Simulated assay, not measured.
Amino acid sequence: MPTNFLHTPIDYLNGVGPARAKLLKAELGISTYGDLANLFPNRYIDKTKYYKINELVPDSAHVQIVGKVTHLKTMGDGRSSRLVATFIDSTGSMELVWFKGQKYFKDNLKLNVPYVIYGKVSKYGSKYNIAHPDVELLKEHRSRQQSAMTPIYPSTEQLTKRNVTNKMMVRMMQQLFSEVHNSFTETLSEQIRSQHQLVDKNTAMYNAHFPKSAALLQQSIYRLKFEELFFIQMELLLQNRIRKTRIKGYAFEKVGERFNDFYSNHLPFELTGAQKRVVKEIRADMGTGAHMNRLLQGDVGSGKT
């Protein structure tokens, strides 16, 4: 993958295409590989634990279960219509319910094939159910890039309506990292990374999306934040240097007699060491003829004025 891969139009990413690319640009401002790579998760969900149906409790947190769909049926009419699937494992059965996207799941769910489902459990009567669960074939679940935590990406109402789910966003991100494999250009020197104990750019980018551990996630986020602030500071220093070299003002090279007289004979108190140092620094700046950008900081009553 060439180093300019970040500018590759998102249309070329396997699984996206023109229509989905247009939607991603309109809703999330994603036009290129680089835009997608820098769409970081809002949060992460731990999917390392698998539950059995007989372990479920009402209104529990989100759970992950391995089992099979044995039956599908449509119930109700009009707005009350819903697709209900019977889902079983070795310990019992429950229901999966879809009010939206019924046709998609009715056409694509396979009976008696192992799936991994994920969602929030509810209980109606004696039956547990999960509404609109994430559903993935077990063999695909095992073969895809694994992470201790599943990323949850930003979304919009239009993306949801067009079936661009978080699951699909994760797959697109997995495809992106599969294609660009360790091709992110390192922007910080070895000296800086060593001095501040920063992980490299490729490690940071990958683990910000697919963290292999909580520790690596923390290190990766710290590295990316450090990098962003580092280059903001560099830009400010560069602009300051440009202003000082290109824009010349009047240089006050000599301190006037009135100031010296006031300072030596009429100032009703002795300046502290810090106050004297600040006055000296301001004098030096005003003698250069360059713009002075200075923040004078001190406690209330410390003599700033």
Rank of each mutant, 00 (worst) to 15 (best):
F5D: 04
L13I: 02
N14R: 04
V16W: 00
G17T: 01
G17K: 07
A19T: 09
A21Y: 03
K25D: 08
E27I: 00
G29C: 11
A37M: 03
N38L: 01
T48L: 14
I53Y: 13
E55N: 10
D59K: 14
D59G: 07
A61G: 13
H62T: 10
V63E: 02
Q64P: 00
V66E: 02
G67N: 06
K68H: 12
V69W: 01
V69I: 14
T70P: 00
H71I: 13
L72H: 11
K73T: 05
G76L: 04
D89G: 09
S93T: 07
M94Y: 07
E95N: 06
E95C: 08
Q102G: 03
N112M: 14
V116I: 05
G119H: 14
K120Y: 06
Y128C: 06
N129M: 15
I130M: 10
H132M: 12
V135W: 08
H141S: 08
R142H: 10
S147H: 11
T150V: 01
Q158H: 13
T160I: 03
N163F: 15
M169V: 05
V170A: 07
R171M: 15
R171V: 12
Q175D: 10
F177E: 00
S178G: 11
E179P: 02
E179Y: 06
E179Q: 12
F184I: 05
T187Q: 09
E190F: 15
H196R: 06
Q197M: 03
L198N: 05
D200G: 08
N202R: 10
M205A: 03
N207Q: 14
N207T: 09
H209I: 09
H209K: 01
S213I: 11
A214M: 03
A214C: 00
Q219A: 06
F226I: 08
F231C: 09
F231P: 00
I232R: 05
E235W: 06
E235P: 08
N240K: 15
R246H: 13
E253L: 09
V255A: 08
E257H: 14
F259K: 07
N260P: 06
F262V: 11
F262G: 08
P268D: 13
V279I: 03
K280Y: 13
K280M: 14
I282T: 08
A284C: 05
G289F: 06
A290E: 09
M292H: 10
L296G: 04
V300M: 01
G301R: 02
